[in-house]
């Protein structure tokens, strides 16, 4: 999440924190999308910033490149311990989490709306596709 000034906010961005008036009255809940109407209202109330969910700004190629670099660095960090099975398990776990993160990010890029709606739970079968 990040805080942005109101003039940088655009309709469609998702609020990462609830938005309240200066006296505490709720204006928009956490997770709701910014609308033209909300922006006009905020301008009238002199609210100068909002906290929004960060969007994925990387392209598919960049995400894959970041993942490739991560695995390269991971290999370099573990270069000394090949025979230790505990550390191999740790490395595998790190790789599993990075793959999961990569796949969730790619899903978000390909289908931003449904991915943000189902943010709490990864889609069924994600674990299988990670291991493939």
């Amino acid at each position: 999440m990040k805080r942005i000034p109101i003039d940088k906010a655009v309709p469609g961005q998702v609020l990462a924190e609830k938005l309240t008036r200066h006296d505490g009255v709720l204006l928009a809940g956490q997770g709701s999308a910014i609308t033209e109407g909300l922006l006009r209202m905020l301008a009238r109330m002199n609210i100068d910033s909002v906290v929004i969910e960060e969007e994925e700004s990387r392209s598919v190629e960049e995400v894959l490149e970041d993942f490739r670099r991560f695995t390269q660095d991971l290999d370099a960090r573990f270069v000394r311990i090949e025979p230790q099975s505990v550390l191999q398990a740790l490395k595998k776990t790190m790789l599993y989490l990075a793959e999961k993160d990569r796949d969730e990010t790619l899903a978000l890029i390909n289908n931003p709306v449904s991915a943000s709606e189902g943010s709490a739970e990864p889609p069924q079968g994600a674990a299988e596709s990670v291991n493939a």
Binding site: L74, A76, R77, R80, I81, Q84, V86, L87, L90, M94
Partner: peptide, 25 residues
Amino acid sequence: DIIIRAKGFGNAGDLLVPPVSMAAW
């Protein structure tokens, strides 16, 4: 120490994951 080095968070002077003490584990 081993876990945080495996994550590559920060820098302890080298970037290697040291061997784990099986007795401690």
